[in-house]
Design a binder for these strands. Structure first.
Lengths: 126, 126
DNA sequence: ATAATAATAAGAATCCATTATCAATAAGTC
DNA sequence: GACTTATTGATAATGGATTCTTATTATTAT
């Protein structure tokens, strides 16, 4: 038989679609359980894996943390994470800078970049 | 009593001093065992931890990999890792670019950056 | 040299993220 | 509705990195 549509898959898909930032497995699990209370961690891992294989979702690897997940299809971007509220903000426009940093004769193929600090809201309060 | 000088500590220190790039625990262990054959993994962890606390060594966290270690005291820098020979090359001069990417009102405090691709030598051969 | 004890080696234990197992459940076909 | 089997839930198992334990070794003060 072919692949089946399930409430669990839909729940996880919608969680990621509604997310304002990349989410980790445990956050996806909690959010998904609000829709499908029985949702289990194993299913989150299974469904995420399948979504990534299909190209529906992408992995975001922060240094020293477990991977986060987001819907794919966004333009290339990076993240600024606020140290206080922990929100993540998308950053674009890296490429024109990075090539200038690449040594002569080198071929730049991929890159990772993360900015950390205070977002505008948290900066005001401090 | 006070801290003692040991061959193990010296070996690990020298391994890091001689290193041309950040090293992982297992690489440090192998290199150290050439000087002190009995050197154990636990000691590498213990000594590295102590070196970091003292500010002698720094941790380099690549996304999705175990941490690497290097001597501290270097000017701020990042790395370009060649996908073929796996060597790492230091990259400097990021700051002037990164502030331009930071949104208005945000305070940029820290950042991580990694470049991947081909180094000049490997690019020639391919 | 000797004694006191910091440091080590070896391996067991822990921790965390992820994967595997398998009986129970439920989507899709008839 | 009944059947086939993909999917799930619960939990055990795994893998890798790191820390703990303990008897042994080796540094340093005396």
């Amino acid at each position: 038989m072919t692949e089946r549509a399930t409430n669990q898959k839909n729940a996880i898909l919608n969680v990621l679609k509604d997310a304002q930032m990349p989410m980790g497995v445990s956050a996806i699990l909690s959010a998904g359980q609000k829709v499908v209370p029985s949702l289990s961690q194993a299913t989150v891992y299974r469904v995420l894996k399948s979504m990534i294989e299909k190209g529906i979702a992408d992995v975001v690897q922060l240094p020293g943390s477990a991977p986060l997940y987001e819907m794919s299809g966004k333009a290339h971007h990076h993240f600024f994470r606020c140290r206080l509220c922990e929100k993540m903000f998308e950053i674009a426009g890296c490429d024109r800078f990075l090539h200038k940093l690449t040594p002569k004769g080198f071929a730049l193929e991929e890159h990772e970049m993360f900015l950390f600090g205070l977002c505008a809201a948290c900066k005001k309060q401090s």
